[in-house]
Amino acid sequence: MLSRRRPWAVARALLGNQYALMLEYRAEIALWALSGSLPFIMLALWSEAPAGAALGLGPEGLDRYFLSAFLVRQFSVVWVVFAFEEDALLGRLSPYLLQPLHPLWRYLAAHLAEQLTRLPFAAAIVAVFFAVNPAAFWLPHPGRFVLAWMATLLAFGIAFLLQSLIAALCFWSEKASALERLLFVPFLFFSGLLAPLAAFPPAVRAAALWTPFPYLIDFPARLLAGLPVPLAAGFGAQLAWIALLLPLVLLLWRAGVRRYTAMGA
């Protein structure tokens, strides 16, 4: 196995290659970064509404929460299903499956490279935010920052695995990609992108915490914004979701590839 013998060389080659590719798409990626502006719209609403004041975060707390939500989202966007669909459509999938490298590694490298390309655009948006709203400026405590970064990485991991699961289902039916659209709906409303979980009625909040979605935005964003957050429970839940999803994805993927090659498609 090439990937086991020289993992470092493979990783470097993949990342370098994908970064060069993503630089070619920088105009699109800048627009993507801009299209993640939803948290700012919601911030404008929450900061004007009486319901926002009732959250007890204070005006700066609200600003920081939504800015953090924006940043966490920027670095946990996943598009495995789309890349997979395109590769299958253009016939690139079969050669990938022949290589002694799990195709998911390729997608992982592409995502990391895309995040690197996105970094300057996201930083520019943050700079504009602080220029417009200097009162909200804060520097997270270094320890907190590292924790928030890890939580974002884990959030990305969960999102990546969820989409890989759907991509693996595409081996059975090409319509499986529509599931991604379905999955996006609860993500949008329960992740904390539109409203902090603190705003939810207690029963809904308790139910939401049993899904993976709050750990994708709300938990890392609260960490980054310096708001009180149950550390152990949050990281525990993130790791639990990864521990649950990872074997499932690997098993389904292997079965899917076997089916795909048996069909000779």
């Binding site: 609403l45 509404a49 996006f184």
Partner: peptide, 21 residues
């Protein structure tokens, strides 16, 4: 299905502005 869920979610978020936490 996605559309109906989307509308339900939007109404839920809207309601957050009207129902105290």
């Amino acid at each position: 299905l996605a559309m109906a869920a989307n509308l339900a979610g939007s109404l839920f978020i809207l309601s957050l502005f009207f129902i105290p936490a």
